[in-house]
């Protein structure tokens, strides 16, 4: 069972629908007790980093999420959810993240349209379980203005190029994140969600 954390940020319907389409059992959860009991955690999210973190804090989920991650429970962050896995973001006045992956989240530089919106190709460097059996076409759907910069290069499982390369997928042990939206990335994205179900 994949538990999608509903912390009041963004639309979870599409993710839920994607798992249903794949016949992968999934549910929506909100409380610390539910996080504590979950087999696999999925952290979605759109919008602002600090607003999302304050919601997670308010629901009392920070410590339990960190504890579950340490226990080895698979965690997948999507889009803003991936960014929240990191130590810190420069968005707004700056904000601490969950710190499950060491690194920062920073805004795209000048000279390009922001948000980075649309279909862009990913370049897989560490396949692992999450990125196995992907279709030949490696386009994924992105919508974001900030991107993650892991401290450890080997945490990057796939790059994407938007003027310069950035981290599109992070994988560190049981912690995973995709900057793009797998639930909106047709076959490629559905394969990744199915793979997460099999981790």
């Amino acid at each position: 069972m994949i538990s999608i954390i509903d912390y009041g940020v963004g639309n979870l319907k599409s993710l839920y629908n994607a798992f249903r389409h794949l016949d992968v059992p999934a549910n929506l959860i909100r409380t610390a007790d539910e996080v504590a009991a979950a087999e696999k955690l999925l952290l979605p999210g759109v919008g602002a980093f600090d607003y999302a973190m304050s919601n997670i804090n308010r629901l009392g989920l920070v410590e339990v999420l960190q504890a579950r991650a340490k226990e080895g429970v698979p965690v997948l962050g999507i889009c803003l959810g991936m960014q929240l896995l990191f130590s810190h973001s420069t968005e707004g006045v700056g904000c601490q993240g969950l710190g499950l992956v060491q690194g920062t989240v920073t805004r795209f530089g000048q000279g390009k349209k922001v948000p980075h919106m649309g279909w862009n190709e990913i370049d897989v460097v560490h396949e692992g379980t999450l990125l196995r059996s992907l279709p030949e076409s490696k386009y994924a759907y992105f919508v974001h203005s900030y991107h993650c910069v892991p401290e450890e290069k080997q945490d990057i499982a796939a790059f994407c190029d938007y003027g310069s390369p950035f981290c599109a997928v992070v994988a560190r042990g049981n912690i995973f994140g995709t900057q793009f939206h797998p639930e909106k990335s047709q076959e490629l994205g559905l394969q990744i969600l199915e793979n997460f179900g099999e981790i």
Partner: peptide, 8 residues
Amino acid sequence: VAEEVFIP
């Protein structure tokens, strides 16, 4: 649509 379409 959301139940069957997995693009934006």
